[in-house]
Computed example of a mutant assay.
Amino acid sequence: METEARNSTEAALLHYKEGLGLFNRKMPRLSEQYNAFTEECFEEGELSKREKQLIALGISLYAQDEYCIIYHVKGCLDQGCSEQEILEAVGVTAAFGGGAAMSQAVTLVQESIDELNQLTQ
């Protein structure tokens, strides 16, 4: 059953979850192992979950992966990152990724923060 999204960020997250669900049904063993691996990578350790989400957001920006950008903006917000912390991580990424990273930061990251914050209000 398809759920109606209230904004483009939520629509992208739903689209990703739907695709993941289909992949899970077709490749359950691989999907289960991948999910276990990634869950372990994001567990609290010497680095906090917050720090790991900020790192993942930077890598997502650098890789120009729009689904991961949105997913990790949400992860940052869920872990209590402020908008300023997210934007500072974006700045570090832009220092390495140049214009491509900055273009995603000034559009998709800011739109995702705004839209995801509206969902929690």
Results as ranks from 00 to 15, higher is better:
M1W: 05
M1E: 14
E2Y: 08
N7P: 09
N7S: 10
S8F: 09
S8Q: 14
S8N: 15
T9N: 00
A11Q: 15
A12K: 13
A12Y: 04
L13F: 00
L14Y: 12
Y16D: 09
K17L: 13
E18I: 09
G19P: 02
L20Y: 06
L20W: 10
G21I: 02
F23C: 11
F23W: 09
N24Y: 07
N24R: 15
R25I: 02
R25Q: 15
R25V: 07
K26A: 14
K26D: 09
K26L: 15
P28T: 12
L30W: 04
E32M: 07
E32T: 06
Q33N: 13
Y34K: 00
Y34N: 07
A36F: 05
A36V: 07
A36E: 14
F37M: 03
E39G: 05
E39C: 00
E40Y: 13
C41E: 08
C41S: 07
E43S: 10
S48R: 00
S48E: 00
K49C: 13
R50W: 00
E51W: 01
E51L: 03
E51G: 01
K52Q: 03
Q53D: 02
Q53Y: 10
L54F: 03
L54M: 03
L57P: 11
L57A: 07
G58Q: 10
G58Y: 11
I59L: 15
I59N: 09
I59K: 11
S60E: 03
S60W: 13
L61K: 07
Y62K: 12
A63G: 11
A63S: 13
E66A: 09
Y67G: 04
C68P: 01
I69H: 01
I70K: 13
V73A: 12
G75Q: 09
C76V: 04
Q79C: 10
G80Y: 05
G80K: 06
S82G: 04
E83L: 04
Q84T: 08
Q84E: 14
Q84G: 01
Q84C: 00
Q84D: 10
E85Q: 15
E85S: 09
I86Q: 03
I86F: 10
I86A: 04
L87R: 14
V90N: 09
G91F: 14
T93Y: 00
T93D: 00
A95W: 08
A100G: 05
A100Q: 02
A101D: 01
Q104P: 00
A105E: 02
A105F: 07
A105H: 04
V106C: 03
V106G: 00
T107H: 02
T107Q: 01
T107W: 01
L108V: 13
V109L: 06
Q110P: 08
Q110Y: 05
E111M: 04
E111A: 09
I113F: 03
D114H: 09
D114A: 14
E115M: 08
E115W: 06
E115K: 10
E115G: 14
N117A: 12
Q118D: 15
T120V: 12
Q121M: 13
